[in-house]
Amino acid sequence: MASASSPSTPGTGSLLAIAAMGCVQLGLAASVDLSSQLGATGVAWLRLVFAALLVVLIARPWRARFTRRALLTCVLLGVATAGMTVMFMAAVIRIPLGTASALEFLGPLGVAVASGRGTSRLWALVAAVGVIGLTEPWHGGVDLLGVCFALGAAACWAGYIVLTQRAGDAVTGLHALAVSFPVAALVASFAITPAVLQHLSWPLLAAGLGLALLLPVVPFLLEFLALRRLSTSAFGTLMSLEPAIALMVGFLLLGQVPRPLAVAGIALVIAAGIGATRSGARDAR
C-alpha cells in the first residue's frame, strides 16, 4: 500500500471517492428507467438481491466469527439498508434526482452535526435554508410524498452510518455487508408484489446484475480503497459533493433541468455538509 505521506495518495483517494459517487448516481439514473417496468420497489429489491449474492460470494461470511451483539448489529444494518434503498428509489421517481439526493444527504449531515462540537451545529440552520430552497413550499407544487420518501431514506442513512461504525468495530466491513445485504434483500421482498416476479426476464435480470455492480458493490470497493488514502474528514468532505453530482447526472441523463432556487438549495446543503464534516468527523482508528 502506498505510504500515507506520498503526494499522489490523496489525489488518488479523491479520484476513487468521486468515481464511487459517479457509479452511485449512474446506477440511480439507470434504475429510474428500469422502474417503468418493475416499479421503484421492484428495482430496489432486484439490486439488493444481486448485491447480496455478489457480496456473499466475495466475503464468504461463514468463515467469520460473530458475537451475538455483532450479528444483531449487522441484521439491523440490513434493515436500515433496505429502508434507505427502497425509499430513495420511491423518491427519485417522484422528484428530481438532485433534489432527492440533497434531501437524503440530510441523514449523514445530521449525524455529523450531532457528533460535532461548539458552532458546528449551526450548519443545521444552513441545511434548513437549503431544504427550503429545494422544496419551495410556498409554490405548493412539490411532490410531498416524494419529499417524505427522501426524508425517510435520510433517516435510514443516518441509522446506516451509526450501525456501520458499530459493525466495523466488531467485524470486518465485507463480513458485515455479507450479513446485512441478504437481510436487506429479505426485508425488501416484503415491499414487492407478485407482479414483479411475473415481469422478470433474462434481460431484466442482466440489468439487475449490472445495477448491483454500479450500486452498491463497485462504489463500496472504491470507497474502501479511498478511505485507505484519505482521512475521514477529507473523505466526508468529498462525499458532501454527491448532491451536486446527482444534479449533473439528472440534468445530463434524465433531462431534469433544475430551478435556480433548487441549485442554491443544493449548494447550501453541500456547504453545510462540508462544514459539519470538518468539525464532526470521527477519527480513524
Rank of each mutant, 00 (worst) to 15 (best):
S3V: 02
S6G: 11
S6K: 06
T9W: 09
P10H: 07
T12K: 10
T12A: 14
A17S: 07
A19M: 10
M21F: 04
G22Q: 01
Q25V: 02
A30G: 13
S35A: 14
L38W: 03
V49Q: 02
V49P: 00
A51I: 06
A52H: 05
V55C: 09
I58Q: 06
A59T: 05
A59E: 04
W62K: 03
A64P: 00
A70Q: 06
L77N: 14
L77P: 10
G78N: 10
G78I: 10
T81Y: 13
A82C: 10
A82W: 02
M89C: 08
A90L: 15
A91Y: 00
I93L: 13
P96R: 14
P96C: 12
L97P: 11
G98C: 03
T99D: 09
A100C: 04
A102E: 07
L103N: 08
L103T: 12
F105Q: 02
L109P: 08
L109Q: 09
G110C: 04
V113S: 10
R121L: 01
L122N: 01
A124Y: 00
V129E: 03
G130C: 05
T135W: 11
P137T: 12
H139M: 13
D143V: 00
L144R: 13
L151I: 05
A155E: 04
A158M: 01
G159A: 14
Y160P: 15
T164C: 11
T164M: 15
A178D: 01
V179D: 06
P182H: 08
A184S: 14
L186P: 12
A188V: 12
V196N: 05
H199G: 04
L200W: 00
W202M: 15
A206P: 13
A206W: 13
L209C: 14
G210Y: 12
L214I: 05
V217K: 01
V218L: 15
L222Q: 06
F224T: 15
L230R: 06
S233W: 01
A234D: 14
A234C: 10
F235M: 14
G236F: 02
T237R: 13
M239I: 15
S240M: 01
E242T: 03
L247N: 01
G250P: 03
L253M: 11
Q256Y: 02
R259T: 08
A264T: 12
G265V: 07
I266C: 03
I270Y: 11
A271C: 09
G273A: 08
G273Y: 08
I274D: 02
A281M: 06
A284T: 15
R285W: 12
